[in-house]
Design a protein around this nucleic acid. Structure first.
Length: 304
DNA sequence: TATCCAAGGTAAGTT
DNA sequence: AACTTACCTTGGATA
């Protein structure tokens, strides 16, 4: 086992591990005390989180198990390998969050959200797992989306040994493509089961690859992702923002639509496309997705 | 204890 | 192209 620590002082701007990992962007981490999403008590606390990471383009050649916690300004980690480049990638520790916040429109709702969850960063989830997670997210509560991903890994993920325990990686496209709708329904995926199976099949057969959207412009990339089954514009935006690094993407979910209704009524333009353009502009353009994530997390936790 | 409701939407069928 | 409707499941609210 390798261990180490990253100091928040060495980052450009603040960092809050719990806010980042439990803000409904990524469903691929689990908290060792099992209290994911159940309490805000560990805010600023010291819970350990862990995940199995597939090889990442330009970052790591092999699968790794990573465990991490934050104690004040120290980000402590334990892993099968050097976790610094992996954590930097997954948790966007390379973002200049100070500059991003400074670039953000000066408005009451946005200011309150940034203040409440200072240190919340976007994530870079592995593309396939992110795609499947957000297909599962339709009409579903955050804690249950997480449970679905846990069950998929437990049932169909490859086993990895680390620190005397057995972990399960997120299933490969092949592994999910080989399942039947009925098997996936047994994991309580509901009507999402065939979407997951058919999307996995598209990826496994090489007909399409979510990571390929990186090469396209924002709106073309969003259109590209909607070819996957169960992926409309909202889920496509989530994959662009939480995996593929399109920081201007603003997923129009129920919370953001409420925010538009209550705080930015002139941005409601009827269609997803037009409303998306309006709110992206209102949220500052280039980093609009950062603003979206703060506002989403803030409203979901009871802010107004 | 029983019933109802809504949850980070999408696909398929109508107008 | 815009508008309706069906869709699995279940924790939490309401009666």
């Amino acid at each position: 086992m390798e261990t180490g620590a990253i100091s928040v002082d060495d980052l450009a701007g603040p960092f809050d591990l719990q806010a980042t990992v439990e803000s409904g962007q990524s469903y691929l981490w689990s908290r060792l005390d099992g209290k994911m999403y159940t309490t805000d008590a560990a805010h600023g606390g010291q819970a350990w989180y862990e995940t199995v990471v597939p090889p990442l383009d330009g970052v790591s050649d092999e699968q790794a198990v990573v465990r991490v916690r934050q104690v004040d300004d120290e980000i402590e980690w334990e892993s099968t390998t050097d976790a610094v480049p992996i954590l930097t990638h997954l948790l966007r520790l390379d973002d200049d969050l100070r500059a991003i916040m400074a670039d953000t429109p000066d408005e009451p709702l946005i200011d309150r959200a940034f203040e409440a969850y200072s240190g919340l960063r976007l994530v870079r989830d592995p593309p396939f797992a992110c795609l499947i997670s957000f297909i599962c997210s339709a009409q579903m509560r955050v804690s249950r989306i997480h449970g679905m991903q846990q069950r998929l890994a437990a049932e169909y993920g490859e086993s990895v040994e680390f620190d005397g325990r057995t972990y399960q990686a997120f299933p490969t496209p092949d592994a999910l493509a080989a399942r039947t709708e009925s098997e996936l329904r047994d994991l309580s995926l509901g009507y999402r089961a065939p979407y997951v199976q058919r999307t996995a099949e598209l990826v496994a057969d090489g007909e399409a690859d979510p990571a390929a959207a990186r090469a396209l412009g924002y709106e073309a990339a969003r259109e590209y992702l909607t070819q996957f089954v169960g992926v409309g514009q909202k889920v496509a935006d989530c994959v662009l923002l939480f995996s593929l690094g399109f920081l201007e993407a603003v997923p129009l979910d129920t919370w953001i639509r409420t925010a538009i209704e209550d705080h930015y009524p002139d941005c409601e333009q009827g269609s997803y496309d037009a409303t998306s353009r309006a709110i992206r502009e209102r949220f500052g353009g280039e980093y609009a997705g950062y603003v979206q994530t703060y506002v989403f997390h803030y409203l979901r936790n009871g802010g107004e």
